[in-house]
Design a protein around this nucleic acid. Structure first.
Lengths: 189, 189
DNA sequence: AAAATATGTCAACATGGCTGACATAAATGT
DNA sequence: ACATTTATGTCAGCCATGTTGACATATTTT
């Protein structure tokens, strides 16, 4: 995938001459050390992380949007459409498009709410679950490979780091979501 | 941003009944523990990570594509168009569109290569650099906040984890890219 | 001189965001 | 009982950013 080759010859030489003096504060306050390494590693890591599922999905005529829907419905069976909209942070029109496809093709089904019959509670079908698990399996394989290289403590430290990277306001809700989904969707221990 | 509220009432109750028995191997081999926590944390962390710059960019009429171009050109002054294409992994037509806008609006400039005059080497202007640094500053602020919460060892462990998450084939090239850019673009210690 | 390379450009198309307007059914409030 | 609010869906159109294919131009390489 993607050869990354910023050829050493020529570029650096040519570049050295006209770089503006980049030492001053760029209107942002007193110079802080920029975390270029983490910024770029996150970019490449995320790119590869979603790249595996993307390949599988594209063969099915699906995209990343479908993946997100399938993932969260699988993890939160019986969730309301409104809940999914909040998590994905997109409009109902955008969601509607992909959701309709997944329902039509038998990956997701909607059932009228028992208490509130306006609601269309979302579930994955067995077919949908199989796909969701396949995709999660690919991502897990990558994660496990990484953790295996670094030692078992890496799981906890990655979890903490990623949690701390989330907006403070949302953190609690995200952790609750994960905890609840663990109970609801994967109840075999 | 995004209230995440998968309401506890109702959904779990309704959901319990028709979940298919999800214990078996889904055609993927013997059940591996799925790393749902990391998968979802990465999703939310990345969403917030790119969210800060997105807001600033949208006010300028730019999108994430512009950010990526500006970021890598700033980090690798004098890089060739072909290098940028390899890093971004998009077509020259897609790049052309956003690159043209940034050149026209004075964020990026192109200079004929000295050795090879077919090349259009890429540089940020002072205006472009200011924006690049502003965006990187926002992302750094988030990263530093996270690391501050977790202790200084978190930087190194995050770096290792993210590196290990990258495709093994690309890892070396990515690390070289980061190392080289550190020399080329931020030569003040 | 011919071929390969670096870059740019035109045209058309797909995906997945968005807004605005409107429709329907069911729950809720007075 | 009737009015309002809520949950969801849908139509229509726009925008950003990815794609393919074809072709143009300048320059370097063979």
């Amino acid at each position: 995938m993607a050869d990354i080759n910023v050829t050493a010859k020529g570029t650096a030489v040519a570049g050295a001459a006209e770089r503006p003096a980049s030492g001053g504060a760029p209107a942002d306050g007193p110079r802080l050390e920029l975390a270029w390494d983490i910024i770029e590693l996150l970019f490449f890591a995320y790119r590869d992380f979603v790249g595996d599922p993307d390949e599988v999905l594209s063969k099915l005529g699906f995209g990343r949007a479908h993946h997100r829907v399938l993932h969260f419905v699988n993890r939160n069976p019986g969730m309301k459409v409104a809940d999914l909209l909040d998590i994905l942070n997109i409009t109902k029109q955008s969601l509607g498009r992909v959701l309709k496809q997944m329902v039509d093709q038998g990956y997701v089904l909607q059932k009228e709410g028992a208490q509130d019959r306006r609601q269309r509670l979302l579930y994955v079908t067995p077919k949908g679950e199989a796909l969701a698990l396949k995709l999660a399996g690919m991502q897990t394989a990558r994660i496990n490979r990484a953790i295996a290289e670094l030692g078992p403590a890496a799981h906890e430290s990655a979890r903490r780091f990623l949690t701390a990277m989330i907006d403070a306001d949302d953190r609690e809700a995200v952790l609750r979501l994960i905890a609840r989904a663990d109970r609801a969707a994967q109840p075999r221990s």
